[in-house]
């Protein structure tokens, strides 16, 4: 039999969890629908004034994306913990934080990526100029990835407890991402340089990948004590 490597195991986890996520369609449909509902309610409530909606668009898109990405946070580890699959992560000789990273990546693929795609519809609904589409996509790409990392930590800390607890843990820590994300789109609206904000978001993600994955491993281990 072939000697298995960490990359083979990562592939297996990704494949297995994506199959499960697609069979339980609510996992990716609920955040997507929630995001679109929040965004489309603003023009209905405020009226179709182009200037008002486009000035509100950065905040609306980002708040909707942030809340939508938190909807499926609880599911990151809960099922694996309940059915005993999570034990394999810690019994294995492979580094657990890499396996935690795989779970974060899956969460992003089933919530962050659909939100990213739907954000283009949101941008059209809110009259966001085409010039702001690219900055919006880049800010959401970095921001939703960081939110998945934060969400994993919240999910690990609230494992086996109420689902709302993970959102309460995560929301205060998501404020810097929200501020940076909205600043990127707002700056692009007034033709200002937004690269600095994107760099800060990129730096947060670069530190967050190893740092938050390691913290998540420690938080998960607390549940075994």
């Amino acid at each position: 039999m072939m000697q298995s490597s960490i990359s083979d195991w990562l592939t297996i986890i990704l494949r297995r969890d994506l199959i499960i996520a697609f069979r339980r369609s609510s996992t990716y449909i609920t955040p997507l629908i929630f995001f679109l509902i929040v965004v489309t309610f603003f023009p209905l409530a405020l009226g179709p004034q182009e200037s008002l909606l486009s000035s509100l668009a950065p905040g609306v898109i980002w708040i909707a994306a942030l809340l939508a990405s938190l909807l499926a946070v609880e599911t990151i580890f809960s099922e694996d913990f309940r059915d005993g699959t999570l034990d394999d992560f810690f019994i294995s000789l492979e580094p657990s934080f890499i396996l935690v990273f795989a779970k974060v990546l899956i969460h992003w693929l089933i919530t962050g990526l659909p939100i990213l795609i739907a954000s283009m519809i949101a941008a059209l609904v809110l009259y966001l100029p085409f010039e702001s589409f690219i900055p919006m996509i880049f800010s959401l790409l970095l921001g939703t990835s960081f939110m998945s990392l934060l969400g994993a930590l919240g999910a690990a800390l609230s494992l086996g407890r109420s689902a709302i607890l993970s959102a309460i843990i995560v929301l205060p820590f998501s404020i810097p991402t929200l501020l940076m994300g909205t600043s990127v789109i707002s700056s692009s609206l007034i033709n200002q340089d937004f690269s600095g904000y994107l760099m800060i978001m990129g730096a947060m993600l670069a530190i967050g990948i190893p740092g938050l994955c390691l913290l998540t491993v420690e938080a998960l281990l607390l549940n075994y004590e």
Binding site: I20, R24, D83, G84, T85, D87
Partner: peptide, 13 residues
């Protein structure tokens, strides 16, 4: 190899 009370079986597979 560890097999606990929860068998690590995924219902949707």
């Amino acid at each position: 190899f560890y097999q606990g009370h929860q068998l690590g079986i995924k219902n949707l597979l």
